[in-house]
Computed example of a mutant assay.
Amino acid sequence: MISALEALQRLREGNLRFVSDAKNSDALTSHARRTALTEGQEPFAIILGCSDSRVPAEIVFDQGLGDLFVIRVAGNIVAPSQVGSVEFAAERFHTRLVVVLGHSSCGAITATLEELQRPSENQSRNLHSIVDRVRPSVEGLLATELRHDHDALVHQAVRANIRASANQLRHGSEVIEQLIQKEGLRVVGAEYSLETGLVEFFDGLPPGT
């Protein structure tokens, strides 16, 4: 088991390799690696990310088989199944870092903003369940001057949604709360830039990191 801070540093280093096109060896996905993992797994980080096809966590962080426990859902929202998945990995594998990974120009965020501004009668109930989970974190932004600047509005909404999801994980589960208080679990928020490939960690970081 590695600490949350060690895991965070490993993710940062992997992301820099990805951005600079200096990826790790294929050994991380080799036959030998697959064989070794049949006996079990020890993922060093849990990633709750968006389902967007442009943001696969293992590639963005340059990690291999068995390194990350990845949960993906549109808008990186937090619903009971996501909370349960985080609890499972943190308890079963003693993983001590959880990253809520959003990204620039997120379709779920823009869809929510559009729905708030121009409600649609044809939206499916299932899609509406995603919008309803994003809505509380972004609705207030439409009452600010940001409503006149679409790009700035989306950027701030993406960040607000990430913070809200991270906060829900920290305070929406007794299991996770106990792991934070007693076992050193840390939940942080991060945003991936589609334009640069960089991941910026900005929420829940310890001082000086």
Rank of each mutant, 00 (worst) to 15 (best):
V78M: 09
E139M: 09
R96I: 06
V78P: 13
F88R: 12
A111V: 07
V55P: 03
A74K: 13
K23S: 01
L142N: 07
R34D: 02
K182P: 02
L198T: 08
L116F: 01
A111L: 06
E183L: 13
Q117K: 12
F93G: 05
D21Y: 11
S20Q: 15
N126D: 12
L141K: 11
P136H: 12
D203C: 02
S20P: 02
A57F: 00
S105W: 03
A157F: 02
V70T: 14
V73T: 14
V98C: 01
G75I: 11
Q181L: 13
A32R: 14
V19N: 01
E39L: 05
E87V: 05
E174V: 11
E177R: 15
N167R: 13
S81G: 08
D132E: 15
V138Y: 09
N167P: 05
I162Q: 00
E195D: 15
R159Q: 12
D52E: 02
E139W: 00
E121V: 04
H128V: 01
A36Y: 03
S129E: 15
S165T: 03
L16Q: 12
D151G: 07
L146P: 10
L205V: 02
N24Q: 14
D203I: 01
D149I: 00
R92N: 08
R186Q: 11
A166K: 01
D67R: 12
L185A: 05
E13T: 08
S124Q: 07
Q82G: 13
S124I: 11
L153F: 07
N15D: 08
V154Q: 03
D21T: 12
E39R: 09
F18R: 03
L16M: 04
A152R: 15
G197R: 03
D52R: 01
R92S: 10
T35N: 09
E191C: 08
E195N: 07
E145P: 14
S81C: 10
I109Y: 03
Q117I: 10
P56L: 10
P80Q: 05
R12H: 02
V55C: 00
G75V: 14
S137Q: 07
A190S: 13
Q181V: 11
R10Y: 04
E13L: 05
L185E: 05
V60D: 03
N24T: 10
H148Q: 13
S104C: 04
P43C: 04
P206L: 06
G204I: 03
K23G: 00
V131G: 08
S137A: 15
E6T: 04
S137D: 05
A90G: 07
V154A: 06
T38K: 08
S20G: 00
S20H: 02
E58T: 10
G40R: 04
D203S: 01
T95I: 06
Q156N: 08
Q168M: 15
I109P: 03
L113Q: 04
G172M: 14
R147L: 11
Q181E: 14
F61N: 05
